Structure formats: C-alpha cells, structure tokens
Simulated scan of single mutants.
Amino acid sequence: MIKARVTVTLKNGVLDPQGKAIEGALSGLGFTGIGHVRQGKVFDLELESADKAKAEADLKAMCEKLLANTVIENYTISLD
C-alpha cells in the first residue's frame, strides 16, 4: 500500500478570490501582518500498488484528468 498526497494550487498570476476573501476575514478577526493569501486543495490517497513508479504515473494521470485544472492550477505529488 502506498500513501500519497496531492497538493493543488493556483498558478502564479491567476486571480484567487477565495484567497482574497480569507485574507479579508483574517484581518476582520484581528489578525495582523497577513500579506498575501492563496488557497488550494489537498488530496490524501491510498493506492494498492506496491510499485512507486506506477503509483506516481497513475497519480499524474489522475491530476491531469480530474484532480487539477492544469490550465490554471499546478500540482505536486508526494509519496510515503
């Protein structure tokens, strides 16, 4: 069994209205010194494969087809 984490974030230059809303909310809650907030998503997956190379290839395909919109988002994959 292989455990994986996929992190998806917006590419630099892509507007992030949720990040701006979070930034404003944090300020409204009294938190100071918050510069720039960007939000993203994290997917934790367990793959039954024992082959790390195949698992990484499968995860890349999952990201390209479903988990990330590669036009506006980047993704990183980490395996345990």
Rank of each mutant, 00 (worst) to 15 (best):
D16T: 07
Q39N: 06
K60S: 07
R38H: 01
D44R: 06
L45A: 05
Q18N: 13
A4I: 06
A50F: 02
V42Y: 06
Q18M: 06
K65C: 03
V71K: 15
D44P: 00
H36L: 13
L59K: 08
F31K: 08
L79I: 15
A68W: 01
G40V: 06
T7V: 08
M1N: 10
G35E: 14
R5D: 00
Q39Y: 00
Y75Q: 12
D58Y: 08
N74K: 12
A53V: 11
E56G: 07
A57T: 15
L26V: 09
K20W: 01
C63Q: 09
I77Y: 07
N12G: 04
N69H: 02
F31S: 03
E64C: 11
G33I: 08
A55Q: 11
T76P: 02
T9P: 02
K54P: 00
H36K: 11
I34D: 03
G33M: 07
R38A: 00
A57L: 11
A53Q: 14
L10Y: 06
G28S: 12
K20Y: 06
E46A: 09
N12V: 08
M62L: 15
G19T: 07
K20D: 12
F31T: 08
K52E: 13
S78E: 14
D16I: 00
G30W: 02
G19Q: 05
N12S: 13
K60H: 09
G40E: 09
D58L: 12
D80Y: 03
D16E: 03
P17C: 05
D58V: 10
I72E: 06
L45F: 13
L10R: 03
E73C: 04
V14E: 11
K11R: 14
N69R: 13
C63M: 08
D16N: 08
A4N: 03
V14C: 09
G35P: 03
N74P: 09
